[in-house]
């Protein structure tokens, strides 16, 4: 089972003089259970791509396949809603989508749209709130009286209450302070540990590097690089050409490597980099050269 894109292209204003490719021949597989990172600049096609995952946009050519069913095809017609709900999309600054009088009602909006029974809706609300560590006391409160971070959690809970199998988050930590960023990145990782398939879209290489098992770099509507973070960061030239750069400590290792140090250049955690540098320092000491 997987979320799959087969040769997906998306053309804006097709046939007019302003015709432009937002996506060009994208082939992408999101495997069940993985944590995939998608990196790219504003205008790289990231947001167009996200909207294809749950059928908000239709490809100009190619197919989007959710668990074996083409969501824009004939066989999906009758259960399009259910299929789309397999893929939960949390957009940037999701707190701006809240509208109900109470937290509980807002989270229930999605499940209600699915046509579930009242008791089932209630249960989903409770589960989603637990998953996002929202205290039960908040249920009857107005979402607009809460802090920015809590609002964002409620918005994410609203998407999770539809029980998607695949969760797509666009810049979940955008606009937050360091504490909030940390909180939401950790939350994303926690949801992944709970069994969700997570796709995180971001322009911060440092954030993606920490959590993603696999990384896709998007540039001008095409996939430019793909692989484990290590594999991707091993191509600093291409990354800096795109203007994305590599995590700070990876560039340190690259610089050391250029000076003749025998170090790996695919690490980015301070602890890992420390170990790698100490190992090389020790080797150099043994050889009597260098330090």
């Amino acid at each position: 089972m997987s979320l799959e894109m087969k040769n997906v292209s998306h053309i804006y204003q097709k046939g007019s003089a302003k015709e432009s490719y937002a996506l060009r021949d994208i082939c992408l597989n999101v495997n069940e259970g993985e944590f995939l990172g998608i990196a790219g600049h504003t205008g790289s096609g990231k947001s167009t791509l996200i909207q294809h995952f749950n059928g908000l946009l239709k490809p100009s050519s190619g197919e989007v396949i959710v668990d074996g069913v083409n969501i824009n095809g004939k066989e999906a017609k009758n259960r399009l809603k259910a299929l789309r709900m397999q893929v939960g999309v949390v957009f940037q600054y999701p707190e701006y989508q809240l509208f109900e009088e109470t937290v509980e009602q807002d989270i229930a909006f999605g499940p209600r749209n699915l046509g579930l029974s009242d008791s089932e809706v209630q249960q989903r609300v409770v589960e989603a709130m637990e998953l996002l560590k929202l205290s039960k006391k908040l249920r009857k409160k107005s979402p607009f009286d809460l802090s920015g971070g809590q609002k964002r959690r409620i918005a994410i809970a609203g998407v999770l209450a539809m029980k998607p199998k695949y969760l797509i988050l666009d810049e979940p930590a955008a606009g937050l302070d360091p504490k909030g960023r940390e909180e939401f990145l950790e939350l994303t990782a926690e949801l992944h540990r709970q069994g969700l398939t997570v796709v995180m879209v971001s322009h911060s290489m440092d954030d993606i590097a920490r959590y993603a098992q696999r990384l896709v770099v998007l540039e001008k509507g095409s996939i430019k690089l793909e692989g484990t973070p290590q594999q991707v960061f091993a191509q600093p030239d291409i990354l800096s050409e795109i203007g994305l750069g590599v995590p700070m400590l990876t560039s340190l290792l690259l610089e050391l490597h250029e000076k003749g140090w025998d170090v790996r250049t695919d690490l980015f955690h301070p602890e890992d980099v420390k170990r790698e540098i100490l190992r090389e320092l020790a080797r150099r000491e043994r050889q009597g050269g260098g330090v």
Partner: peptide, 18 residues
């Protein structure tokens, strides 16, 4: 819970060893 530049964090770690 403020950010520390990763390079400074690394420096602090290395400083403890060397």
């Amino acid at each position: 819970q403020l950010d520390v530049p990763p390079i400074t964090e690394l420096a602090a770690l290395l400083h403890k060893e060397k």
